[in-house]
Design a protein around this nucleic acid. Structure first.
Length: 883
RNA sequence: GAGAGUGUAGCUCAGUUGGUUUAGAGCAUUACCUUGACAGGGUAGGGGUCGGGGGUUCGAAUCCCUCCACUCUCACCA
């Protein structure tokens, strides 16, 4: 026998098996006759590195994929990365700045060269890291949201939507990020309450000494005021009808207008109107034909139009204007005020409302089928509660601003000539369109839109574009729709909802024979938090280094730890302790292998005990397989893994192996050994999706195998009927063994001290011990010296009586019995039984219960009563014997 | 402002259409055992009136109402 190391060493086997699997092509999928099982990865940022969220997310996907593979399906997990327009651009700009290069000094082409170089250098690191986790992705299919097929898809979709009138260019109030200098979608703005001030400012009424006081959070926008508004029903201001006020500091005369929007109760009931820098003011401005004066530059500094403090940052300007107002005696008061501030998700800059011309998708025109699909469970959300979240958002859906003032991304496929717009997949097509209007036009006359598209405008096509759906590939007909999507709930609107909409928008034409939804199930994972429930973040430094974790505990240990604390959709509190449990579990399995391999074999028939252990375990195994299948079908992976953990640690290691284990120096029958290897092997298959490396390693160590007969491609056991009675009877035996161990414990006896066990004759004890091997099993496991059946109420000296199930046992021990302690124990049990019987009797004496409850429930209560009475009687006898 | 969710053992959570021995698991804790797979092991124990109150029901952790506490999402009045 070859020497097996005492501890499992993950590092030595993980790399070996991963490259073996890859070499064998087990991860690769091509369409064939089998049923497909498809998952597309939520593409991580191309320049990102593996963090805990990725570990969670990708472990779950790998479990699903490996299970499908074992189920004989054609499993295909498509990996890829996202170009992450704004995030990557921010990183590239920062790096260039560090090198002393300003983005504004570069041409678009030069900049893109730098960006691609960055992508080549850092891009894909995360995909290497996923391999360390054991992710069985089909790497040949690796996609990138900005590669050629995906870019082509984006252009096709843009043109298609434009032609269908579902995409337009419009002048609107947008969310402007002055730091990234781009517009943001509503979803990219995060609102939170922050401390600020409310300034009360006096505006002089033109041609009068009277003043009107308005309240504002943003005095720096005063220079852009083009009206002051009050409520039409507000009596305090009724006399101002037709009057005008002088805007402080810039001395502009503006009208006093009357508008329902104004809340009479808030502040002074008078509102300064700045149509250029507030969405509501903009609406008011439209209603009253007000001038729009944009006083803030794209970078957040005051523009020429502001007249004063030109060039100062908006927050500096706020202080300056406040001082100016105070100096002019126009600042009535400045009070503390708490209000919600919108910040850019990426740069954290305070978002500036701004009037701008951008491209939008008209979401109301594509939302309906996507909403219906989820409401009707055509697409199933796990957990269900996100259906409501989804519904509310979809019902109130607003148009999606898709253009961004960045360079890293897909450039908007629109070309302009004077006031005409030509939307086309290529410049040539755009020119053709233009020439239809004016044949004299050349390419030089057309100017392409400077903006790029939102990253999500490429990733929302992911389930279609990864299979080259827009290129007319046959593959999509095989793989679409995908089976499951596994992602965090935080991107339900950014990504999940939009993918569903894109599925229903294009699948009907791209794959008309297939269902249109992009995925059947959506498994929303929670956010990974630390033990103190804080979000894991770089700045807090509370996020463990994912790779170090894998190096320290092994990929299987990390996968175990991550899964065992991850209820679907609920946030999960990550604790390194759990990963340690996973590592210990590997070690336990490893030592079970060591034990099995250490058995000395002999060609002899299996013993009765062995036979009982084997038949019991085989039945119990089927029960667990059924449970695991059920749990996995409901995406309760954490529960399935826990079931397997206790089954392997408890039933297999603590019971099965201990039962068949030969005495020290003894031998095991070859037949039992072979059965044990079969059992062990089956356990490795069911555990494989969760812990792929150790299972493959153990599998390969258990016996010699034919080329290609590997655990990863074996067959998951089928569910089948099992003998529930047998399982129960063995459970009675293990309970009996436990009772005897407890008895030894309580009497300070070691495992080796002699115990003679007597069992009182009864129908149930007869039945239990007529089970082949039952007596031998108890004898071996509880290490008793003899086992005998006795007639009820036999007098025995120095015996301790106890109950197991409903049967009375007496243990004769060669030791002084602590009578008082024993009495106390029995009395405690008696008290419990009395309490128990009371509750049962109460139920049974209630006529309405007996009359109304289902017969089975009543019968069960009667059995509970009878059993309880039996037990109470025995306990009382036992107590009496001690007196 | 609107909506959703949560509250069960010291901690993290199960508890699947209301009924299966007067509530379960893991971790933590306590006692003991342990030179023959594993001290990262084993055996056993203690610990909860299921957030409070009310209701429906023969029967409620589970359904309804109400209150309390916390979390999240969306929308926002200067």
């Amino acid at each position: 026998m070859t020497e097996i190391a005492k501890h499992f060493d993950p590092s030595s086997v993980e790399e070996k098996w991963y490259s073996y699997w890859e070499d064998k092509g087990y991860f690769y999928s091509t369409p064939d006759d089998r049923e497909p099982y498809t998952i597309v990865i939520p593409p991580p940022n191309v320049t990102g590195i593996l963090h805990m969220g990725h570990i969670l997310n990708n472990t779950i996907q790998d479990v699903l994929i490996r299970k499908a593979r074992l189920d004989g399906k054609n499993a295909c997990w498509v990996p890829g990365t996202d170009h992450a327009s704004i995030a990557t651009e921010a990183k590239v700009v920062r790096k260039l700045r560090e090198q002393g290069i300003k983005k504004s000094d570069l041409t678009r082409e030069e900049y893109m060269e730098h960006a691609w170089a960055w992508k080549e250098e850092y891009g894909g690191i995360i995909l290497q890291q996923l391999r360390k986790l054991g992710a069985s992705c089909d790497w040949k299919r690796t996609a990138f949201t900005m590669d050629e097929p995906r870019t082509e898809s984006v252009y096709k979709v843009f043109v298609d939507l434009y032609k269908k009138g579902k995409l337009y260019r419009g002048l609107r109030m947008v969310n402007w990020d002055p730091e990234a200098m781009t517009v943001l979608s509503n979803e990219e703005v995060l609102h939170a309450e922050e401390n600020s001030h409310l300034y009360h400012v006096k505006y002089q009424i033109e041609g009068s000494d009277e003043y009107l006081t308005v309240a504002t959070k943003r005095p720096e926008t005063i220079m852009g005021d083009t009206a002051v508004a009050v409520h039409p029903d507000d009596e305090k201001y009724a006399h101002l009808k037709g009057k005008r006020v002088i805007v402080p500091l810039v001395n502009r005369s503006v009208p006093i207008i009357f508008d329902d929007y104004v809340d009479m109760e808030f502040g002074t009931g008078a509102l300064k109107v700045t149509p250029a820098h507030d969405p509501n003011d903009y609406e008011i401005g439209k209603r009253h034909n007000l001038e729009v004066i944009d006083t803030i530059n794209d970078n957040g500094t005051m523009s020429e139009a502001a007249q004063i403090h030109v060039g100062a940052d908006r927050f500096a300007a706020r202080k300056l204007v406040s001082k100016d107002l105070e100096a002019a005696g126009l600042l009535v008061k400045k009070e503390e005020y708490r209000s919600s501030i919108g910040r850019s998700e990426r740069t954290n800059a305070v978002v500036e409302p701004k009037l701008s011309l951008q491209w939008y998708v008209d979401m109301k025109k594509i939302a309906d089928p996507a909403l219906k699909a989820v409401m009707d469970d055509e697409i199933v959300f796990h957990p269900k509660k996100y259906k409501t979240t989804y519904r509310v958002w979809m019902e109130g859906i607003r148009d999606w601003c898709i253009s961004r003032q960045l360079w890293w991304g897909q450039r908007v496929p629109a070309w302009y000539y004077e006031d005409k717009v030509y939307v086309a997949e290529t410049a040539e097509e755009a020119l053709q369109q233009a020439q239809a209007d004016d044949p004299a036009l050349t390419m030089d006359d057309l100017k392409q839109d400077e903006d790029v598209l939102d990253t999500w405008f490429s990733s929302w096509l992911w389930p279609l574009s990864t299979f080259h759906g827009f290129q007319g590939s046959k593959e999509i007909e095989y793989y679409y729709p995908t089976n499951a999507l596994v992602t965090g709930w935080d991107i339900i609107f950014f990504w999940v909802a939009r993918m569903i909409m894109s599925g229903y928008e294009w699948a009907p034409t791209l794959v008309p024979e297939k269902e249109s939804y992009p995925f059947k199930h959506v498994y929303f994972t929670g956010m990974v938090r630390d033990k103190q429930k804080r979000k894991m973040s770089k700045s807090l430094g509370n996020s463990p280094d994912a790779l170090k974790l894998i190096a320290d505990y092994g990929a299987d240990g990390v996968r175990y730890g991550m899964l065992s604390c991850s209820p679907a959709g609920g946030d999960l509190l990550f604790d390194e302790k759990l990963v340690e449990t996973g590592k210990n579990f590997c070690n336990k399995i490893w030592n079970a292998l060591r034990l099995v391999k250490s058995f000395q074999l002999e060609d002899k028939p299996s013993s009765k005990v062995d036979e009982l252990a084997i038949v019991w375990f085989e039945n119990k195994f089927l029960q667990i397989v059924e449970l695991v299948e059920k749990e996995m079908a409901q995406f309760r992976l954490s529960e399935a893994l826990t079931s397997l953990y206790s089954f392997i640690w408890g039933d297999f290691c603590s019971w099965y192996l201990e039962i068949v284990k030969p005495e020290y120096g003894g031998t095991l029958s070859k037949a039992t050994y072979e059965k044990t290897v079969d059992i062990f092997e089956q356990l490795m298959i069911v555990l494989h999706p969760y812990m792929p490396f150790i299972t493959e390693e153990v599998w390969s160590s258990l016996k010699e195998r034919a080329e290609g007969a590997d655990c990863i491609v074996s067959t998951f056991p089928k569910t089948a009927a099992y003998d529930v009675e047998l399982i129960k009877q063995v459970e009675s035996l293990t309970n009996l063994v436990t009772s005897i161990r407890d008895l030894r414990n309580k009497n300070g006896m070691g495992m080796k001290e002699a115990v003679d066990l007597k069992v009182e004759k009864s129908d149930s004890s007869d039945s239990l011990f007529s089970l082949n091997g039952a007596g031998e099993m108890v004898t071996k496991m509880a290490n008793i010296s003899s086992l005998e059946s006795i007639a009820p109420n036999t007098e025995l000296s120095n015996g301790i009586s106890f109950l197991s199930g409903n049967d009375k046992y007496v243990a004769l021990i060669d030791k002084e019995i602590d009578v008082e302690a024993e009495k106390e124990n029995i009395q405690k049990e008696i008290d419990y039984q009395i309490g128990f019987l009371k509750s049962v009797e109460k139920k049974l004496s209630n006529e309405r219960f007996v009359g109304n409850a289902p017969e089975a429930v009543v019968a069960n209560e009667r059995k509970k009563l009878a059993d309880g009475q039996d037990r109470l009687r025995i306990l009382e006898e036992n107590l009496a014997n001690l007196m």
